[in-house]
């Protein structure tokens, strides 16, 4: 099978600082990739390259056979991106915002109108459809962002911390949504720090640290290879050298000698 996303020898620097070193990845249709790594590891940069936002990388990045650098617009049509919270025009209503996004995606009113209605209803936002989002809770805004990412029915969906601010029921809904989308053959690129969720939803885990891929396998294989039960532990042992002194031991040791207050 041809990979739907393919990165070959990808390097990217900001000024003199290199954030991605020789990234090589092949992702196949229908896979759910859990893309994890410590802060500043290069996750957002990878995501921005895949969305066609950054084109000044070196190496090859192909999405559905299209080189991102050559035709970022074609790539943007294929990809749905759900950014981390807050990037919304809050003074618009969900309807206005989603209509705007749909138009940018080149959708016809006859298609997006019913789709927006249905999606908003599924997320329980029907009564808020024509209220301005500046009064919305974090979770409600996140739902609008989620809809805006999948509205155009993209083949590849990139989620960047999609669960932040959602309540328990919505978390269940989104997790369910991800596995349903994958079953329909969509490729999911899931970036998160919530290891327990990544562990459950992804069928392949890519761990990036200091701009390099340090692990790329199924969760079961990683468990076996590392001899550890949870993704959290695997993550920690693979990235520990990056954060010296962040152990709980050291934290507790700080109480020594002046236990009083």
């Amino acid at each position: 099978m041809e990979p739907i996303i393919s990165l070959k020898q990808v390097n990217k620097s900001y000024g003199t600082k290199q954030v991605l070193h020789d990234i090589n990845l092949d992702i196949f249709p229908g896979q759910v990739i859990g893309y994890i790594g410590p802060n500043g590891a290069g996750k957002s940069t990878t995501v921005k390259i895949l969305c066609g936002l950054l084109t000044d990388y070196t190496g090859q990045v192909q999405v559905a056979g299209v080189e991102v650098k050559a035709d970022p617009l074609a790539v943007k049509k294929l990809v749905g991106y759900v950014p981390e919270l807050a990037d919304l025009y809050e003074v618009l209503t969900p309807w206005e915002y989603l209509e705007f996004v749909a138009t940018l995606q080149g959708m016809e009113p006859s298609v997006y109108e019913t789709r927006i209605q249905r999606m908003v209803e599924a997320f329980g936002l029907r009564d808020n459809l024509h209220q301005r989002m500046d009064s919305f809770s974090k979770g409600m805004r996140q739902k609008v962002l989620l809809i805006s990412g999948i509205l155009h029915n993209p083949g590849i969906i990139i989620f960047d911390e999609p669960l932040s601010g959602l309540d328990a029921n919505s978390v269940i809904l989104v997790k369910e949504l991800i596995s349903r989308l994958a079953r329909e053959g969509k490729t999911i690129f899931y970036c998160s720090h919530m290891m327990d969720v990544v562990e459950k939803v992804s069928d392949r885990i890519v761990l990036i640290s200091e701009g390099t891929v340090v692990a790329d396998d199924t969760f079961a294989n990683l468990q076996q290879r590392m001899g550890q039960q949870h993704l959290e532990q695997i993550f920690s042992s693979l990235t520990k050298h990056q954060q010296p002194g962040s152990s709980a031991d050291e934290l507790l040791r700080a109480f020594e000698n002046n236990n009083a207050l």
Partner: peptide, 13 residues
């Protein structure tokens, strides 16, 4: 700056 994620991620040349 919100335009970066809202508009530039869409197929807008």
């Amino acid at each position: 700056v919100r335009d970066n994620t809202i508009i530039l991620t869409r197929p807008v040349n």
